[in-house]
């Protein structure tokens, strides 16, 4: 993403929702991207959009991808689950970075 020209503030691992929102405020972020490798995505994402709204970050897009859940769930169902949590874009573990970059650029126009 850096190569694509985005300025990235990396928060590393085990970040609470409050930390990511505070960082987004501080950095005047346009988007928050969360990558989950352990299937913890529901914990990371549930309620995040609501907190963004209170924090005045309604305009900040939420992008989420990778290993989202543990167990068998069709991709369409995973996508719907996270869209219901008001994540703007959801990507499977085998998505290529170019897809997310293209979506970001299109959304930020």
């Amino acid at each position: 993403m850096k190569e694509a020209g985005f300025k990235i503030v990396s928060l590393e691992i085990q970040v609470s929702q409050e930390e990511s929102i505070n960082a987004a405020i501080q950095a005047k972020a346009d988007a928050t991207s969360v990558s989950s490798l352990s299937g913890h995505a529901k914990i990371l994402v549930e309620g995040l959009k609501a907190k963004c709204v209170e924090a005045g970050l309604t305009h900040v897009g939420l992008y989420h991808g990778a290993q989202l859940i543990i167990g068998d769930m069709r991709w369409e169902d995973q996508d719907r689950l996270f869209k219901e949590m008001r994540v703007d874009r959801v990507y499977p573990h085998n998505a290529i970075p170019e897809q997310a970059i293209a979506d970001l650029k299109a959304n930020l126009k």
Binding site: I25, V53, E54, A55, G56, L57, T58
Partner: peptide, 9 residues
């Protein structure tokens, strides 16, 4: 109420 301090205004 509405908005955290420094949040939505």
């Amino acid at each position: 109420t509405g908005g955290t301090d420094g949040g939505d205004d």
